[in-house]
């Protein structure tokens, strides 16, 4: 089993740790460069993307994580994590940066503010229907040809991807960690094993 880290600068870290433990994965939290160096895969949790990008910089993690991503580190980003992995961000801060590890463009709060946040069932390739929780969620508005779409949602404006994968990098608009369903994390963990 790979050792999976959960970026623990801010956000719903505990829920990701719990799901990984259910799956029998060795888990550690990552707040420092040393802790990042020790993990074989990483989850970037939900939270506030602007806060996390600020903390990545002041904790000297931005360059290290960027390097690990270039080396093919397996990463799953949920909600804010997806924003941080994306190529371009709209409706963000004018100076908001992202790692660009996933060839998608996202719109922050693309499904609306909190009063419009919702949960629904989405069909995920290979595993079936999954209850998915969207909280001020980013919307994927463009994706490159190398991006595999694992789930989409039609919110009346045509289907938009909500779970995508490009090689070792996974991005999810919603929060699989907020339900007791561990299947999406399971797919991610299996993909790490397969690539080793």
């Amino acid at each position: 089993m790979p050792r999976v880290g959960v970026l623990a600068l801010q956000g719903d870290v505990r829920e990701h740790v719990s799901v990984l433990k259910v799956l029998g994965v060795q888990v550690s939290t990552v707040k420092t460069r040393e802790e990042l160096a020790e993990v074989e895969a990483l989850i970037i949790p939900g939270g506030e993307s602007t806060t996390m990008s600020h903390l990545l910089e002041i904790s000297n993690l931005r360059a290290d994580l960027s390097e690990r991503l270039a080396d093919g580190l397996a990463v799953l980003g949920t909600c804010a994590g997806l924003i941080l992995l994306s190529k371009n961000i709209s409706d963000g801060r004018s100076d908001q940066w992202s790692f660009g590890a996933l060839d998608v463009d996202v719109r922050r709060n693309g499904y609306g503010r909190q009063v419009a946040s919702f949960e629904t069932l989405v069909e995920v390739a290979g595993i079936g229907k999954v209850q998915s929780v969207f909280i001020r969620a980013p919307r994927i508005e463009r994706f490159g040809s190398d991006v595999e779409i694992l789930a989409s949602l039609d919110d009346g404006d045509g289907p938009h991807p909500v779970l995508v994968r490009q090689g070792a990098v996974w991005g999810c608009s919603f929060h699989p960690e907020l339900t007791t369903d561990s299947r999406i994390h399971g797919m991610f963990v299996e993909s790490i094993d397969a690539s080793r």
């Binding site: 719903d12 870290v13 919702f118 629904t120």
Partner: peptide
């Protein structure tokens, strides 16, 4: 609009509180 979707559920509301954890 969405298939069997709902806004304002406890999970959606408590979920935002969870996203703010570890923050100021």
């Amino acid at each position: 609009m969405y298939l069997e979707s709902s806004i304002g559920t406890s999970r959606v509301k408590r979920g935002l509180a969870d996203m703010l954890r570890g923050g100021v």
